[in-house]
Computed example of a mutant assay.
Amino acid sequence: MNRAVELQRFNGFSFGGDDLVISHLQYADDTLFIGEATTENLWVIKAILRAFEMASGLRVNFHKSCLMGVNVSNEFMNMGAEFLNCRLGSVPFKYLGLPVGANPRRLVTWQPLLNTLQNKLSVWGNRYVSLGGRLILLNSVLSAIPIFFLSYMKMPVIVWKEVVKIQRKFLWGGVSDRKRISWVKWETICLPKREGGLGVRDLRIVNTSLLAKWRWRLLQNEDAMWSWSCDVRSVGGEVAQNLNWFSSSVSRTVSNGRNTRFWLDKWTPDGPLMLKFPHLFSLSRSPEATIGDMGNWLGEAWFWDFTWRRNLFVWEENQFHSLLSSLRPLVNRTGMDSWRWEPDPEGVFSARSVYSLLVHRWSLANLTIHQHKEVLALVWTSKAPMK
């Protein structure tokens, strides 16, 4: 396929500011051809599949293959499906359990998930489960089923309310149809036990924690092909209480300083230097320079070299000396700079650490819970089994 694109026999789909062209994607034993709706592309696809059969001795199962089009006439789609001897598909479609091409903001996209949760409750319909047992089932089953969806799509508020409605009804009333009173608000139930909650995972925070993995991967590989399609700005939300929670939780580990901006990136314990020394930042001739550009190696020693728009006044020189005293020289010429996840002692990112961070931020924002934290922690010190 790559050769066909190079010879301009197959026209892939181009998008993005850099005219990125994608002709095919592969995952495991699945192959997805992406291109313009032309007869020439159909001939190339059929020729490639036939060549694959002859070279490998395998046969393509066209009955399990389908042809899908976006803004393509029905006449062309019917002709293409008959030409390739495959069935017609439509967008959105389901792949590996996820709706591809669906609008995640619509309730209908999440309806299969809600149906799965309801069906799971019907399985437990004829069983008596105590409150402790319902809590275990809630954490291990009802809160685990949506994980796959939450790893790729942001859950709308209306869907979250429906899921919480199912979870709350099961926790307080089991699977009976009788309406029971919810004695504690759901936000308190989702707090850790040491803070007076039941330890039930808040799916809003779980969703944010799982989506944060994509933002972290984007930091690790900003030139990845998939990065153009990710709107990492949506990672956050009301549960974070602070839209800058992710930026404040990452920092740069400096080696050669070639990939870390001196003024703009967070690589010192006090945060970005542009915030700590804003006046010196405004006087710098290289506000976007990297650390490696702000000095020179003399033998095995590193020396800082700053250039200013004008000569510094005496009081500005005092700030400059304060800046120099807060810097540490580079010690590695060959190593590459990397990102560090501050909440983890080892600097390793994980969704679990993100969840703990956001839950802690939420509990601090709730002054009532924070003030009574020590008292509420005593609630769960009993060694009696939950009933």
Rank of each mutant, 00 (worst) to 15 (best):
2 N>H: 12
3 R>Y: 15
11 N>V: 09
14 S>A: 09
15 F>P: 00
21 V>R: 06
24 H>D: 13
38 T>W: 00
39 T>R: 05
39 T>E: 12
56 S>R: 04
59 R>F: 07
66 C>D: 12
70 V>E: 00
71 N>Q: 07
73 S>E: 10
77 M>R: 06
84 L>E: 06
94 K>R: 15
95 Y>H: 04
103 N>Y: 02
108 V>T: 04
113 L>I: 06
114 L>Y: 01
116 T>I: 04
125 G>S: 15
127 R>Q: 11
128 Y>C: 10
132 G>F: 06
133 G>P: 04
138 L>S: 12
149 F>C: 08
158 I>D: 15
161 K>I: 04
162 E>D: 13
164 V>G: 03
168 R>C: 08
172 W>E: 08
173 G>S: 08
182 S>D: 07
183 W>E: 10
192 P>Y: 11
193 K>D: 13
197 G>F: 05
205 I>V: 11
206 V>I: 13
210 L>V: 05
213 K>I: 00
216 W>I: 00
226 W>C: 06
237 G>A: 07
239 V>W: 00
241 Q>R: 15
244 N>G: 04
246 F>V: 05
248 S>M: 09
258 R>D: 07
258 R>W: 00
261 R>T: 04
265 D>P: 08
277 F>G: 02
277 F>P: 02
278 P>Q: 08
278 P>E: 10
281 F>N: 08
282 S>H: 09
293 D>L: 11
296 N>Q: 13
312 L>K: 02
314 V>L: 11
324 L>T: 07
335 G>M: 05
337 D>S: 10
349 F>G: 01
352 R>P: 01
353 S>M: 10
357 L>K: 13
363 S>A: 10
378 L>C: 14
378 L>N: 13
380 W>M: 14
381 T>A: 15
385 P>S: 12
